[in-house]
Design a protein around this nucleic acid. Structure first.
Lengths: 209, 209
DNA sequence: ATATTCGTTGAATTTGATTCATTTAATGTG
DNA sequence: CACATTAAATGAATCAAATTCAACGAATAT
């Protein structure tokens, strides 16, 4: 990866990182709206204009502040050989919400705001519109259940995954809206027991007995 | 209510309404960010400053744009004598999502943005902090189920209501994030059948047989 | 008839994001 | 090594839009 970088590129990478760190600290502390580019630049020890070398808009920096890869999380869950589907889903949900809470409520709020409207992004020169409601990771966890023969394969996979993901997004929103009082991560066990398990139970294969 | 209003008050009410209507149309059309106070004032046929006679901040006008009272919706559902709990919940969910979709995606987006952080509001002169994650309406629907003896009364009422509401909020967010592709209102039946009914079914009283 | 109050006005102010011409320094080249 | 080229940094200037406010005029109250 970092094959042979020139000093210049290395320095640039540093600058970028400094800006991201400064932004992270300030936004977590004061919120996005109350943090100005000047604040960020000052804290990062660079000039105002420098911010725009690395980010096109103020908002864009937020995308850098939570680097959890939820699809990767699903892979880890799916790799748990000794855990059954409920456990694996529980793991996924716990970590989804736990990671979000770790990145901080203000950053989460801003992430939601940024992604409520689809953004146009450049991919290989082409304009694409990127939807941010992505339930593929949950779907992957359910699929693994099918693959292992824990679930019937006639289950409405997309519907269920979409709903379970909606549950997670809903708790994330509830967490923000109650200023942290409703903690999603505290609720995951109850979530699995009260909603998710009953929802998938019609499709759980009866073990031969 | 509208006891004896002076002409002045009447005119003021008109102005207010004109501003709200202009804002509604413009925000629905161009989104909140792309609509300026000047735009709104111009379309309403009033001056820029007049906006601030009626709203303290630009955002505040959004609160006027969806006037659905979800608690009232719960009352209507609860008053349905011939419908069972599942039907009543279905009714509530359909109308919740239906009403939100009717008010329009841009307004919904902005409403979420406004309410992601608790707002300080004035109530009778006192500053109060108002959380916007409110699941009391759903709770009321479940409570009615208990009252009618359809549900065991040992069910985790708050937990369930919170989760069901999270489901609705999650779908609302999904709807926004996919630019309307995921339509919550189209999903309510599946939602009830796949998630909500299974979730409450452990608490549904076995009818005497 | 006069004083007061309230809503209206639009120009002035303010704030903060974004741009850009210029500078600085590293890299590449003969 | 000198020189040309390019990437990155700078911060003052620009711009856009929200918000304020002093002055105005019509309605209401006395």
């Amino acid at each position: 990866m970092a094959d042979k970088m020139t000093n210049r590129q290395l320095a640039a990478q540093q600058t970028r990182k400094k800006i991201i760190n400064a932004a992270k600290a300030l936004i977590a502390e004061k919120g996005f709206e109350n943090t100005s580019i000047d604040d960020i630049a000052k804290k990062a020890g660079v000039s105002t204009g420098s911010f725009y070398t690395y980010f096109k808009k103020k908002e864009d920096v937020v995308e850098e502040l939570n680097k959890t890869d939820f699809y990767r999380l699903a892979e880890i869950a799916n790799a748990m050989e000794d855990k059954d589907l409920t456990e694996r889903l529980r793991f996924y949900c716990r970590n989804f919400l736990g990671n979000i809470e770790n990145t901080g409520i203000e950053i989460c709020r801003q992430w939601i705001k940024n992604n409520l409207s689809p953004n146009d992004m450049l991919l290989g020169g082409e304009e694409i519109t990127k939807y941010r409601y992505d339930y593929r990771a949950v779907k992957a966890v359910l699929s693994e259940g099918v693959r292992r023969g824990e679930l019937e394969n006639n289950l409405p996979l997309d519907e269920l995954a979409l709903f379970i993901n909606a549950q997670l997004y809903g708790l994330m929103v509830a967490w923000c809206m109650t200023d942290g009082e409703v903690k999603g991560s505290d609720k995951t066990d109850a979530l699995c027991d009260t909603v998710i398990r009953p929802a998938i139970s019609p499709y759980i294969k009866k073990t031969n007995f």
